[in-house]
Design a protein around this nucleic acid. Structure first.
Lengths: 194, 194, 194, 194
DNA sequence: AATGAATGAGGCTTCATTCAT
DNA sequence: TATGAATGAAGCCTCATTCAT
């Protein structure tokens, strides 16, 4: 019902992304997704042959989007700190749309989901060099460069992953947690940079 | 078969913890767990009534262990930095045994797993106050105190969660990743403290 | 694609006959047949309304061809033995093209496939009389006439039906079985006639 | 319901044999068989893991029974003609119980059902030698020995396979066909022996 | 305490068929 | 005449759970 302006196949993928990555229902059935998309369950098989192949299509799209976003920021000609700041923005924005994306991809990997040709290696190498330069300049903590990236991702993503757990742990309601999230960007930048 | 020195019930729980948190097979069936424990599948229902209640027992045990460990360190009469250092040690050690523990607890929460009576509130309040004092002293970044704890957990746990993803991203083999992990503690302490 | 010189409808029937009676895939789906014919699956429904009606059309064509062939030989003005010899030839030739034809028709009858108006009764009556006369002459075994025809069909058709089973039973490879088949005609004639 | 005196697993196999080989419903679903056996459909999976493996079990049992029966007669110390006579009896009796047995096994072979280790080769070789001796004695038609066996099976089995087709072809009602079948043994013996 | 047998619920998939163009 | 999209029916299979011993 919902969508005739976009092609049905794409509509199903988008719905699945929402179910998986926004609602976090990684184990939604094909019926669940069909219901959410307002289509007949069989249609999913018509387009994707099997549940697994729908998964593949969804993860592939998510992966490509992530890479594209990362490259558009990290590949730009900007000062390092500015670049990281924008990247944190991009990540946070994405996490607001798809809070369960990272955890889903990680979880699904345990279940045999194979890796696809990932971030262009050269791209990663270049960025690691840029990080190394900053360490030499003394603007960030000196260490094996991968640690900086690990720290970055950890600080941004993890609190989203464990949101319900944290809310409970710290006794924060939805509103209060929202406030904390809003502060994260500044905290993260201060944590990453000397 | 495997265990007659410990009660069968406890043996099943331990096996389930291994399957869930060490192997990361959160969706293992009762048959899987029964196989791993070397017992008949229906025995699980005999002891735990239902799959969900086995889950509850397992998560409850994990939760209690986590709290006990946390309290034994954070509740001790030690200088703040020393305390955090020991806590990072405890967390890292636990993650080596149960790398999928945190992610499992988080994931299962999405699926309606309810929270149990969690960390004694007073305990958390006391620790947050301690953090606030340190912020005032200037030894750590000044912010809403929960951020410090969020940072701490994020920096320690996340790299374990996304290990396979990271290995791929940075092109690290098992040995190289191991080396990075060994460096984490120092990096984390330097990141958390000014 | 394959056929524009013959009507598409006829092309589909011919393809189906090949799939059913030459390849022996009596349970081929409409998709299988469409693929083999190089046409869209729904086209089969366009022409034949339903899978069953395609079946009907195919079996009807096979039946008519069989009857026509039988009549052209058995209705000819030839000495009895000559007539039977030619009929065996005709049957063997047909079985080489459509080895699974007889078994398919038989099998499909079990599944409720109704009979159509069959061999003209008079024609069969005449032939049975001819057989009776030969029995009186003593050239063939004396018995209820239908036995002669049963024997004839059995001896010719059955070895084709159970070819794979026989190959295995007697340990014959393709070439060796071919040799046996070539000997069949003489053996059959000797078996049928005194 | 039907059976508590025999083990359920065996009861399911027997029911399946009846459905397949007596009723000729080779494409019966697991539900059909479960209904016929008076058991829950899932129980079939409990015992046989999959529909295919039920098939395997059924065909294996049929195959073993056939071999055992054949050996008990053909391996006996009897005059050749007497032996064949008894074998025809055995085959006819079996066909009355399982008229669709042979055709089912043949049909299923087309669909990839693999052969199992079949009739002991030595046994077949011995019987072929016996046939060759009879040919030398002149009691049966002289030819490659396998033809005699082919003829034997053809003459006995085929009329059962095409019973409905034959009834129609010759215009025989159930009673009349029954009468013809009763005559078959004598006709077959006369046909096979000089 | 333990287990083989049995069952209901629910999931994935295939297929023939219909609809709209 | 031909085809892509969509759907309902029905099949197979897995799983948690219950029953009877």
């Amino acid at each position: 019902m919902a969508a005739k302006d976009k092609k049905t196949e794409q509509h199903i993928i988008d719905t699945a992304m929402h179910v998986f990555f926004t609602e976090g229902r990684l184990h939604a059935t094909t019926q669940d997704i069909a219901d959410a998309a307002g289509v007949n369950r069989t249609l999913i098989h018509y387009y994707f042959k099997s549940r697994d192949q729908l998964f593949d299509a969804v993860f592939e799209k998510a992966r490509l989007e992530s890479i594209r976003e990362a490259q558009s920021v990290l590949g730009a000609a900007l000062p390092f700190r500015k670049k990281i700041e924008q990247f944190v923005d991009v990540l946070l924005k994405r996490l607001e749309t798809y809070p369960y994306l990272e955890i889903s991809m990680t979880t699904s990997m345990h279940n045999g989901q194979p890796f696809r040709d990932e971030v262009p290696e050269i791209f990663m190498q270049q960025f690691l060099q840029e990080v190394a330069q900053e360490m030499n300049k003394g603007t960030i903590q000196r260490a094996t460069p991968v640690h900086f990236i690990m720290n970055l991702f950890s600080l941004v993503i993890y609190p989203f992953i464990v949101k319900p757990l944290n809310q409970h742990l710290f006794g924060l309601n939805e509103q209060e947690y929202e406030k904390i999230v809003k502060e994260r960007k500044t905290v993260i930048m201060n944590t990453l940079f000397n």
